[in-house]
């Protein structure tokens, strides 16, 4: 579905991605893990077209999409779900959701998808005419996921859906994400919450210093010492002479 090959890129003259390669198969949920400043967000922006890659190729659904304008990438069915704080505060819940369906012209279909989103997230239906500025953090995250669903994409890129949320809310959100994947949408889940992401996803990539550092099936990664040491909060220095502390 999505294939990234040797992508290099960054902002201005600052190189952040140093040759990232990864792939996501159709219907799969893949986790993209890594700490702050490792290049996760840059990679996301590069996939969704907000920044152009310098080198390498990105193929989606059999066609090259690197260098394409972001709105054209959305039209092909690849949508980035932003973090909750990126909902438009001055627009109502329903307006935010309708924005997600901007690329669609079939009014009846949009209304059906809207009802489907309200079925996933009943709280959004209750608050459809409120400004999204009045929502809580968890509700904002739901709004952004719902907004991503509105165009009925083939694949969604989820940008840290658990960021800054209470544990109970995180569980709710992840349950929904699992359901979205089961119902046929391919997902790339970018997360800092490594344990949760690996419990849910089938395959994982750990990115560091702008390259894929470790990759493997999720159940393997969750038992992997390097992953545990780096991201699951172990103390590292004692294991391997501090090799993993380089950055």
């Amino acid at each position: 579905m999505l294939e990234i090959a040797g992508v290099e890129g960054g902002y201005g003259s600052v190189q952040i991605l140093n040759g990232v390669s990864m792939r996501v198969a159709r219907g799969q949920m893949v986790a993209l893990l890594g700490g702050n400043g490792t290049g996760k967000s840059t990679l996301l922006k590069t996939i969704s077209g907000l920044i152009k890659p310098w080198k390498g190729s990105i193929t989606f659904d059999g066609q090259r999409i690197d260098g394409l304008r972001p709105d054209l990438i959305v039209r092909r069915g690849l949508v980035q779900v932003t973090q909750g704080k990126e909902a438009y505060p001055g627009l109502t819940v329903e307006e935010n959701l309708r924005l997600g369906a901007h690329v669609r012209r079939d009014r009846a279909g949009v209304r059906r998808t809207l009802e489907r989103v309200f079925e996933y997230f009943p709280i959004l239906g209750d608050r459809r005419n409120q400004f999204s500025a009045t929502l809580s953090g968890g509700q904002l995250q739901m709004l952004c996921i719902g907004r991503g669903m509105m165009s009925e994409p083939k694949m969604m890129l989820l940008d840290e859906p658990s960021a800054a949320l209470a544990p109970q809310v995180v569980l709710d959100i992840f349950r929904i994400i699992g359901r979205i994947c089961r119902e046929g949408t391919t997902l790339l889940l970018v997360e800092q919450n490594v344990r949760m992401a690996l419990l849910l996803a089938e395959y994982g990539y750990v990115i560091r210093d702008g390259v894929v550092h470790i990759e493997g099936p999720a159940e393997k990664l969750i038992g992997d010492d390097n992953v545990r040491l780096s991201y699951l909060g172990g103390t590292v220095a004692d294991r391997d002479g501090g090799k993993n502390l380089r950055h």
Binding site: S48, G49, L50, R69, P70, D71, V74, R75, V79, Q80, T82, E86, Y88, G90, L91, E95, R98, L99, G100, H102, V103, R147, S151
Partner: peptide
């Protein structure tokens, strides 16, 4: 609606599939 989105934040508007230019 797209115009209001573009007015507020162009990057997010792009991610909504809006032809921002």
């Amino acid at each position: 609606l797209a115009a209001r989105a573009v007015a507020h934040n162009k990057e997010i508007a792009y991610l909504m599939g809006i032809n921002v230019p």
